[in-house]
Amino acid sequence: MKKNKTIETENSVVDFLARISEKKRREDCASLIALLSKLSGFEPKMWGTAIVGFGIYNYKYESGFEGNAPLVGLASRKNAITVYIASTFDEKETLLSQLGKHKTSKACLYIQKLEDIDISILSQLVQRSIERIKELYPS
């Protein structure tokens, strides 16, 4: 059976931040790490080499594929900071319309810099996302 490639590791979050060459992006990621840690109640952990995750849940799809994932996470990608949230939850679209400058895909929120968004709206998105994941995948 196929295995999940992105798993929790012992890699250093500090080293992850140090590898971000652009100072502003590094500062924004550090601020987001502090915020996501506060909102989730979990310390940041590396998932693979490029995702900072908070908390953990086990999922199992109808196909039988299962694995673990962080409740919420972030990565510094080439074109944006990516925040990983649940794909669907109550008020997601309404909150996204109030967030500010961003792009989305199914379970990813892409932002360029923190000044582009409303942090209080991001906080609500993250909280609702975590609530939905816990509802779908109770431990």
Rank of each mutant, 00 (worst) to 15 (best):
residue 1 M to E: 13
residue 11 N to L: 10
residue 12 S to H: 08
residue 13 V to N: 07
residue 18 A to F: 11
residue 26 R to H: 06
residue 30 A to K: 11
residue 31 S to G: 11
residue 31 S to Y: 10
residue 34 A to S: 15
residue 36 L to W: 06
residue 37 S to I: 09
residue 38 K to I: 12
residue 38 K to L: 14
residue 40 S to W: 00
residue 40 S to C: 10
residue 41 G to D: 07
residue 41 G to R: 02
residue 42 F to R: 08
residue 43 E to Y: 11
residue 45 K to Y: 09
residue 45 K to P: 07
residue 45 K to G: 07
residue 46 M to F: 02
residue 47 W to S: 03
residue 49 T to A: 13
residue 52 V to C: 07
residue 52 V to P: 01
residue 53 G to T: 03
residue 54 F to Q: 04
residue 54 F to N: 06
residue 54 F to K: 05
residue 57 Y to P: 00
residue 63 S to G: 07
residue 65 F to N: 13
residue 67 G to L: 03
residue 67 G to M: 04
residue 68 N to Y: 13
residue 68 N to C: 15
residue 69 A to V: 08
residue 75 A to I: 09
residue 76 S to V: 10
residue 78 K to P: 10
residue 80 A to L: 09
residue 81 I to S: 02
residue 81 I to P: 01
residue 84 Y to K: 03
residue 84 Y to V: 06
residue 85 I to Q: 02
residue 87 S to E: 15
residue 88 T to V: 14
residue 88 T to S: 12
residue 89 F to M: 01
residue 90 D to I: 14
residue 90 D to H: 11
residue 90 D to M: 14
residue 91 E to H: 10
residue 91 E to M: 12
residue 92 K to C: 05
residue 95 L to P: 01
residue 99 L to N: 03
residue 99 L to G: 04
residue 101 K to R: 09
residue 101 K to A: 14
residue 102 H to D: 05
residue 102 H to C: 06
residue 102 H to V: 03
residue 103 K to I: 13
residue 104 T to D: 06
residue 105 S to M: 08
residue 106 K to G: 15
residue 107 A to P: 00
residue 107 A to H: 12
residue 113 K to T: 15
residue 117 I to M: 04
residue 117 I to T: 00
residue 118 D to Y: 08
residue 118 D to K: 09
residue 118 D to T: 10
residue 118 D to W: 08
residue 119 I to R: 05
residue 119 I to P: 02
residue 123 S to D: 08
residue 125 L to S: 04
residue 125 L to R: 01
residue 125 L to P: 00
residue 126 V to A: 06
residue 126 V to P: 01
residue 126 V to C: 03
residue 128 R to M: 10
residue 128 R to N: 13
residue 128 R to W: 08
residue 130 I to S: 04
residue 131 E to H: 08
residue 133 I to T: 06
residue 134 K to I: 06
